[in-house]
Nucleic acid binder design. Structure first.
Length: 419
RNA sequence: GCGGUCGUGGCGAAGGGGUUAACGCACUGGUCUGUGGCUCCAGCAUUCGUGGGUUCAAGUCCCAUCGAUCGCCCCA
């Protein structure tokens, strides 16, 4: 073997790429309806952006970043998620100066240095949205609704929306202490991951599969939300109910990024082996300020493209594929060959999908090729037809043939396609 | 970072130490000197991920390495 693609990356080939294009088109079209506009930011940023934005103690920053020193001796990192870069661009371009809420979306590759498995790659793709400038719970609900609608319109079945409130820094601090108190008596019985979580992010212990038993009866964050947080969380639910988005409250839902406040949510679906999260997001009210902007609230989500594809496949959902060829042109003889080139161009300019042979193959082989392309028509032009100013057109589905004059040919094909 | 399984032609897949590497699909050509989807015939891997070792002999055993895949941690 010579050079192989980097571990955990994939080549998206014709046949597969059509599915991506379909999903991307759906995302763009949906965002347009929800009035979100596209933003494209660099796929690498100063490492510090992610350290500050995503959080120093997150797994992402601690062990999953593709970090390198560039020739100017700067530490750069491939983006491990989309929000930090969009926040940076929002601040740097002073979009907060606009009168309306900034509603943005992105589609693109993200990079995390992890061991690949079903639904997990080192280069993966996310479709995400971010809304800056509003604290109103209706926009939390809108973001959640957009993701849900996206899955639904793609044909995904049985998508669950789990939501929680992770509070604000004040009530979370209180809760954090309560959780530590709760686990203190069993601290040395916890698994080693949880022992370190105990100090760093005790809420995660509740998520641990090994230590489920110790988590029973643990206090939930919802019991410690202050007035503001409770009201906000309730309002988000009310809006979602009004929109008829089915939700499940999961008081143990904790996300892997540090920046969330208030609303946190995940979309789940079966079909990717051990992984069930297909997207997630939340509100991040302190983040813009942390990145250095004048502080503006934000909410957003990120959906994994690969995971959508995997679930679609597991559920046997069909994705529309590219239309077949309209016309396959066969030229026999040198003079006819040149006429074919000319007609091919005319057909294409006229809006038809047309193809010819480039390998000097015999008629029979060309017919087979036309068949493989599922061509609607095969047009045959030999020197004798050419001499008469005619062309033979075969309807592949029925096998019928007719003779057309060369002048009418392109127009006739165009008319057929319109049917 | 750790653990399980796997790595043979364009694809799927036999072969588990003994020397021409099955078979199926696809493809190419012929049967049909200008007509597809059917039939029949022929062709299509100096080579079994890579490197090293054991042996008279290695896809076949051993080690390493790379990759795939599944799982753990965590997430998209």
């Amino acid at each position: 073997m010579s050079i192989q693609k980097p571990k955990g990356t994939q080549d998206l080939l014709p046949g597969e790429i059509e599915k991506w294009q379909y999903i991307e088109n759906k995302a763009r079209e949906l965002c347009s309806r929800f009035n979100y506009r596209e933003i494209r930011t660099p796929i690498f940023e100063n490492t510090e952006l992610f350290q500050r934005g995503v959080g120093e103690t997150t797994d992402i920053v601690e062990k999953e970043m593709y970090t390198f020193i560039d020739k100017g001796d700067r530490s750069m990192s491939l983006r491990p998620e989309g929000t930090a870069g969009v926040v940076r661009a929002y601040v740097e371009n002073k979009l907060y100066g606009e009168p309306d809420v900034s509603k943005l979306y992105y589609i693109g590759p993200m990079f995390r240095y992890e061991q690949p498995q079903a639904g997990r790659y080192r280069q993966f793709h996310q479709f995400g949205i971010e809304a800056f400038g509003a604290v109103d719970p209706s926009i939390d609900a809108e973001v959640i609704a957009l993701g849900y609608t996206f899955y639904k319109e793609l044909g995904l079945k049985d998508v669950t929306v789990e939501i929680n409130s992770v509070g604000n820094p004040a009530c979370r601090a209180v809760y954090r202490e309560k959780i530590q108190q709760f686990f203190a008596p069993v601290k040395d019985k916890l698994c080693k991951d949880c022992q370190s979580r105990y100090d760093r992010n005790p809420m995660r212990i509740l998520d641990c599969k090994i230590d489920q038993k110790y988590g029973e009866g643990a206090p939930t964050i919802l019991e410690y939300l202050d007035e503001e947080c409770t009201v906000h969380f309730q309002a988000v639910q009310d809006h979602l109910n009004a929109m008829e988005i089915p939700i499940r409250i999961n008081p143990r839902l904790v996300r892997g990024l540090d920046y969330y406040t208030h609303t946190a949510f995940e979309y789940k679906a079966a079909g990717i082996g051990a992984i069930d999260t297909i997207g997630g997001g939340g509100r991040y009210n302190g983040l813009v300020g942390q990145i250095g902007g004048n502080d503006q609230p934000g909410v957003g989500l990120g959906l994994g493209m690969e995971r959508i594809l995997l679930v679609l496949q597991a559920q046997g959902v069909d994705i529309p594929t590219a239309p077949p060829l309209d016309v396959y042109l066969i030229g026999l003889g040198e003079t006819a060959e040149r006429e074919v080139t000319k007609l091919l161009q005319q057909l294409r300019v006229a809006g038809l999908k047309a193809e010819k042979d480039y390998l000097g193959r015999k008629m029979k082989a060309q017919m087979k090729s036309a068949d493989r392309y599922h061509a609607s028509f095969v047009a045959i032009l030999g020197d004798d037809e050419l001499a008469r100013g005619e062309i033979t057109v075969k309807t592949m589905a029925t096998g019928e043939q007719q003779t057309l004059s060369l002048e009418q040919f392109v127009a006739a094909m165009q008319k057929q396609k319109a049917l």
